[in-house]
Design a binder for these strands. Structure first.
Ligand SMILES: [Mn+2]
Ligand SMILES: [Mn+2]
Ligand SMILES: [Zn+2]
Ligand SMILES: [Zn+2]
Lengths: 143, 143
DNA sequence: AGAAAAATTAGAATCATTCTAATAAACAAA
DNA sequence: TTTGTTTATTAGAATGATTCTAATTTTTCT
């Protein structure tokens, strides 16, 4: 009742993704979508689940994250070799990435302008544009 | 003599990176910098070397790529989870990524404008901005 | 309930990358 | 150029995130 989002909404959400509302998927959906936007790794979501006493296998966490991504509920994001983040914000936006901590923060999509896209080969279309602003501790600005 | 770049230049290049000009590093430098800009993975560079009859271990390819990167001769680029590309173009520029083929193509840096950067936490600075325009086959444009 | 379809799971397998510890090559001094 | 010292290379093992397999359990449908 805390967030205008209760359990029934998640049942619907999962159903509309074409998936059966299992205990595992419902609790993952709750963790992902209950409290605003998140950028989360599979491992972190898994250990969070265990912490909350909800037993889910890591394989199911991966399966579910990919299913939600395919359904358009999540967006997969790669900032570092060998580690995927899943973003609950699927609207057009970009990212600030804190290199030291691994934290990701959203940047509104309209802060970035692509001025003149290069000519695309015939029949090609843009499927997505990722902008990652990497920041770290230090004095002045770099180029 | 083919490219205004001969072997001696590579000896110098490697020396100025603070590294000993070994047979392995020289032949990797040649492959990387002899023919214009490249976006290459460690595996590909390694098998290219073997094809040319130059025996280098994969560990050395990785070591060298990272050493060159630290020296500012290369830039490491992540477009896909679990695979790093090394870019011989270290000037400010962005990328077109062909999702089907894995090909990367440069986009001049001045085609992209970051209009109003979000406020950075105190003492943080931008270390780098990566823009990846993902393209694929398809009819119209997407958002 | 009973049958069929879909989901979950433990553990093995993958695969790019990194590490280890042993051998070899490069360099500086004499 | 020999010798000693530092740095590099290497094979193979280890790592770590992710995916796969094949068996078991749940969900859904009639
Ligand atoms: Mn994935
Ligand atoms: Mn690296
Ligand atoms: Zn985001
Ligand atoms: Zn490039």
């Amino acid at each position: 009742m805390q967030n205008a989002v209760d359990t029934n909404d998640f049942v619907e959400l999962v159903r509309q993704a074409g998936l059966r509302p299992t205990r595992q998927r419902l609790s993952l959906a709750r963790q992902l979508f209950m409290n605003g936007d998140r950028h989360v790794t599979a491992e972190r979501l898994h250990s969070e689940s265990l912490d909350q006493g909800i037993s889910v296998s890591l394989a199911t966490v991966y399966n579910t994250l990919h299913q939600f991504t395919n359904a358009g509920l999540l967006r997969e994001l790669v900032v570092d070799a060998g580690r995927s983040y899943f973003d609950t914000n699927v609207s057009a936006h970009h990212h600030l990435y804190f290199e030291e901590t691994g934290e990701l923060r959203d940047v509104p999509g309209d802060n970035v302008a692509i001025e003149n896209l290069p000519m695309l080969p015939h029949g090609m279309k843009v499927s997505r544009i990722d902008v990652i602003i990497r920041v770290k501790n230090g004095s002045a600005e770099s180029s």
